[in-house]
Amino acid sequence: MTDCGCDKAKAELEEYLHRELSDGDFQDISEHLATCQDCSDEHLIGLTITEKVRKACQEKAPEELRSAVLGRLSQISS
């Protein structure tokens, strides 16, 4: 186990949230988060924001708005 420290954990938090780190770096940060309340709090904030954005991106425009936009695009490109 290597404690990566707060600087590394905070600098790589976004990559950690999206599992974009090597297995070793991911493990180091996981271990650090388990023992550091400040970094763990930052991680929780990041998780919350990531989840809110994910949910917001699943919303779809009403069908009549979609049709209106596609119709207008069709007029413009003609």
Rank of each mutant, 00 (worst) to 15 (best):
M1Q: 13
T2W: 08
D3C: 05
D3E: 12
D3S: 04
C4E: 04
C4N: 05
C4F: 04
G5Y: 03
C6H: 05
C6W: 03
D7H: 07
A9R: 02
A9H: 00
A9D: 00
A9G: 03
K10N: 12
K10H: 11
K10P: 05
A11V: 10
A11D: 12
E12G: 09
L13I: 03
E14G: 07
E15S: 15
Y16F: 05
Y16Q: 05
L17S: 02
L17G: 04
L17F: 07
L17K: 01
H18W: 10
L21N: 03
S22F: 00
S22N: 00
S22A: 01
G24R: 15
G24Q: 13
G24C: 04
D25S: 01
D25R: 10
D25H: 01
F26D: 06
Q27F: 06
Q27I: 13
D28W: 02
D28C: 03
E31V: 10
E31I: 09
H32C: 00
L33A: 01
L33E: 03
L33Y: 02
A34M: 08
A34C: 04
T35C: 11
C36I: 04
C36V: 03
Q37Y: 07
Q37F: 06
Q37S: 15
D38V: 13
D38K: 14
C39H: 05
C39F: 00
S40M: 07
S40H: 11
D41L: 14
E42G: 08
E42Q: 10
E42H: 09
E42K: 08
I45K: 14
I45M: 11
G46F: 04
G46E: 03
G46C: 05
T48N: 14
T48D: 10
T48Q: 12
T50D: 15
K52I: 14
K52T: 11
V53G: 07
V53K: 14
K55F: 11
K55W: 08
A56Q: 13
A56W: 09
C57D: 13
C57P: 01
Q58Y: 06
E59M: 13
K60C: 10
A61S: 13
A61Y: 14
P62Y: 09
E63T: 15
E63A: 15
L65E: 13
L65Y: 10
R66N: 09
S67H: 12
S67Q: 15
A68H: 06
A68Q: 06
A68Y: 05
A68N: 09
V69S: 01
L70H: 08
L70A: 12
G71D: 08
R72T: 15
L73C: 06
L73R: 12
L73F: 05
L73Y: 06
S74E: 03
S74C: 03
Q75R: 11
I76L: 02
S77A: 09
S77Y: 00
S78H: 03
S78E: 07
S78V: 09
